[in-house]
């Protein structure tokens, strides 16, 4: 088994003639946490999608715990989970049915009571039997986070986890991420909420126009870039 959770070499992704990621060399150790920062269009989401195997790299290689997320797709799916700004939810299913579908597809046996406890963790118990189509974006985000609890992956990718959340929701998600980091899960977060996330993540990487512009301790990141308004 590889000692790195994530390793990519000379990674590049092109859309048409435009390279949105180029020459990205990255190594994240098991249990480490990495904050991806950068302005809009700097390539954060594309990098996460390539790492998660949702987008093929146009150049270079990616390994997640030593496995290629494309040629060893199924094996990698058991190792990683992604929470995106896309909710991946079916509006017609209730919160409880959604959890049950995720558990069954992931091949994990969960009793109804355990799923109810999970809903309770994100304060969604009163909305257990309501279709998620009527949920606010914050409620959707909280429900989506439960996917990582069900799948229990070794690596979690989070794309703008604090977007569209009120202050209570932000605190809940921050606690969530901090707990995953504490438990030794490898976490990669792409976010504009630099001060909040740099308190949770150990390392940081600043992307500019698809290339690594700076890499170092997350605590040093705020001084490297202007705070977003």
């Amino acid at each position: 088994m590889s000692s790195s959770a994530i390793r990519c070499e000379s990674l590049g992704r092109r859309f048409g003639r435009r390279w949105v990621l180029a020459h990205v060399d990255l190594e994240v150790a098991r249990g480490d946490s990495l904050l991806l920062a950068g302005s809009n269009g700097s390539g954060k989401t594309t990098l996460l999608r390539v790492l998660a195997g949702l987008s093929r790299p146009s150049a270079g290689t990616v390994r997640i715990l030593g496995r290629d997320p494309h040629s060893e797709r199924l094996a990698c799916r058991r190792l990683l989970s992604m929470v995106s700004h896309r909710s991946y939810l079916y509006d017609g299913l209730t919160a409880f049915e959604t959890l049950r579908v995720w558990a069954r597809l992931g091949g994990v046996a969960y009793a109804d009571g355990e799923l109810e406890n999970l809903l309770d963790e994100v304060a969604l118990t009163p909305h257990r039997d309501l279709p998620v189509g009527g949920f606010s974006s914050g409620m959707r985000k909280r429900l989506t986070l439960l996917r990582t609890r069900i799948e229990k992956p070794d690596v979690i990718f989070l794309d703008e986890p604090l977007a569209a959340l009120d202050s209570g929701g932000k605190k809940l998600v921050e606690r969530w991420i901090a707990r995953e980091v504490e438990h030794g899960t490898t976490v990669v977060v792409a976010s504009h909420a630099i001060p909040r996330m740099s308190r949770i993540c150990r390392r940081a990487l600043l992307l500019e126009e698809g290339q690594i512009a700076w890499e170092g301790s997350a605590a040093d990141l705020p001084s490297q870039m202007e705070e977003p308004a």
Binding site: A52, L54, S81, S84, R86, S87, Y88, L89, Y90, L105
Partner: peptide
Amino acid sequence: NHALEGLLLA
């Protein structure tokens, strides 16, 4: 909501 992508991640 890109649900198919969610299935592909599972």
